[in-house]
Design a protein around this nucleic acid. Structure first.
Length: 483
DNA sequence: AAGCAGGAGATGT
DNA sequence: ACATCTCCTGCTT
């Protein structure tokens, strides 16, 4: 593995011929974030149920008396910072010309259930709702954890909770596991049927039990999600029976979005069946990083997506003794998410023509998976914060390449430094790099031929130069640009 | 076949 | 105006 490049990106010190984009702090005001207080609790609930949420290790797992999160990734503590920077999260950029979000509204990936967390899970009564993770970002329904602050980005840190309680959610998790198994089964043998709310029975029964609200000192959850409004002071606290369908659909939608966002970050298809060997390795590395699990040699996962999907949990554990179960569980989530995406696409086609992912198990199309940065389909999207759609299309190619280079754990199989100090890098997977670039610039027809033409334009601009010994797919930044 | 080099017009912001 | 994007021809690996 060549992941040892753990330098700190310093794009902000680079010459800014054009303002960087997508890095302005999302000047979020309370009004903008028209999210009801109670859905914050709902988000917690969804996380408990493993609907999909980032691991948020410091928020939901281990009780940390010092309120100081452990370093997310031992090999590269700046990884998350950079990843979030890449996603348009606040980086002190002197020349941000827009307060918008990158086109790919990248959110921390996290299609992840909570099965692997055996430690008690926190549920918090958050006096300051605005800081509840997932709602302090401009992406109302998105991931949770996006704004978790590592390092310097503490302006988005979650406040110290006033009080916390533990609950035992083993039962919920068990239910969730069963639920997932059923979903997985239906993935394996996809049938053309619309059986929407017939499944999830266990989840439904759990959700219908509102006693947890009192038990956990939570605010009641008014699931008038279609007309979500922020009514902070009016405190609509009357108990409303949760609409299970909406909770479920929120959970599923969230799961799909998280998966899709990870796809954007990694440049892979949302359907594991379509993954190439490189995709599989990227996903494995990313997931291990994401869960703070020990790295394993990528050769252990030298297989394509179809082979990966076919692995049993035991086989995962053989390859990665300490993390096989987690990887396996995550893959299950991905499968389920694809299945759900496919199912919903089956009947949204009749409702309204909206671009939906290619059906899982029907890999007729290519794996472009351009659906990831779609606006949050969740209810709170109706409040008009929607600026995530067309974000940082102004980014320069050289900046973009440096972004990729700055996340070797994520993109190391696509592009990596050969000589960091001299700015020499190599594109290992030209197709993927071009695909990522095309997504970022919203240019679906982008390919490496065009991308490389743009790189060549940099020769006479003094941004890049030819390497001494010309090698295929090897380029070199001119001095100040490589810093 | 894939990549490299560079001209030239088109395009989006 | 600028930074690509797109298409192209010819060359190299």
């Amino acid at each position: 593995m060549n992941w040892e490049n753990s330098f700190v990106e310093e794009t902000d010190t680079m010459p800014q011929t054009v303002p960087r984009s997508g890095c302005s702090p999302p000047s979020v005001t309370q009004d903008e974030r028209a999210v009801p207080t109670s859905p914050a609790d709902l988000q917690h609930l969804l996380r408990l149920l493993g609907a999909s949420s980032p691991p948020e290790p410091m928020l939901h797992s281990p009780p940390n008396p010092h309120n100081k999160p452990p370093p997310p990734y031992p090999e590269d503590n700046n990884f998350l910072d950079r990843l979030y920077d890449f996603e348009g999260y606040p980086t002190p950029s002197p020349s941000s010309d827009e307060g918008s979000i990158p086109a790919v509204a990248l959110q921390p990936a996290s299609p992840y259930n909570s099965l692997q967390y055996t430690t008690p899970v926190y549920i918090k009564e958050e006096p300051n709702r605005l800081s509840v993770p997932g709602f302090s970002s401009p992406y109302p329904l998105s991931p949770s954890g996006s704004c978790v602050s590592y390092g310097s980005h503490n302006q988005y840190a979650s406040p110290v909770p006033h009080h916390e309680e533990y609950i035992d959610i083993e039962e919920l998790l068990k239910e969730n596991q069963i639920l997932q198994e059923s979903v997985q089964q239906s993935y394996v043998t996809p049938k053309i049927e619309i059986e929407e709310p017939r499944d999830h029975i266990l989840l439904r029964s759990v959700l219908e039990d509102t006693s947890f609200q009192k038990r956990l000192n939570l605010r009641p959850i008014p699931l008038e999600l279609g007309t979500v409004k922020m009514e902070e002071s009016s405190g609509g606290d009357e108990l409303v029976a949760p609409d299970i369908d909406q909770v479920l659909s929120m959970a599923i939608e969230q799961s799909k979005r998280d998966v899709d966002n990870t796809c954007t970050v990694l440049g892979i298809s949302p359907d594991p069946m379509l993954w190439s060997t490189g995709d599989v390795k990227s996903w494995v590395m990313f997931t291990l990083q994401h869960f703070n699990l020990p790295m394993v040699p990528t050769e252990y996962f030298n297989m394509d997506g179809a082979a990966l999907v076919a692995l049993t949990e035991e086989e995962f554990n053989q390859r990665a003794p300490q993390s096989g179960s987690t990887l396996y569980a995550q893959l299950e989530i991905w499968k389920a998410a694809r299945h759900e995406a496919w199912k919903s696409s089956q009947w949204t086609e009749h409702q309204q023509p909206s671009p939906t992912p290619a059906p899982a198990g029907l890999p007729s199309a290519d794996d472009l998976s351009d659906d990831e940065d779609s606006e949050p389909a969740g209810p709170s999207a109706s409040t008009g914060v929607g600026k995530a759609k067309t974000g940082s299309t102004h980014i320069h190619l050289w900046q973009f390449l440096k972004e990729l280079l700055a996340s070797p754990h994520v993109h190391g199989s696509a592009i990596r430094w050969l000589d960091r100090s001299n700015g020499v890098f190599k594109i290992e997977d030209s197709v993927r790099v071009a695909r990522l670039w095309g997504k970022r610039k919203n240019r679906p027809a982008m390919n490496y031929d065009k991308l490389s033409r743009s790189i060549r334009q940099y020769y006479k601009k003094g941004i890049m130069k030819k390497t001494e010994r010309s090698q295929r797919l090897v380029y070199q930044f001119c001095h100040p640009y490589s810093l």
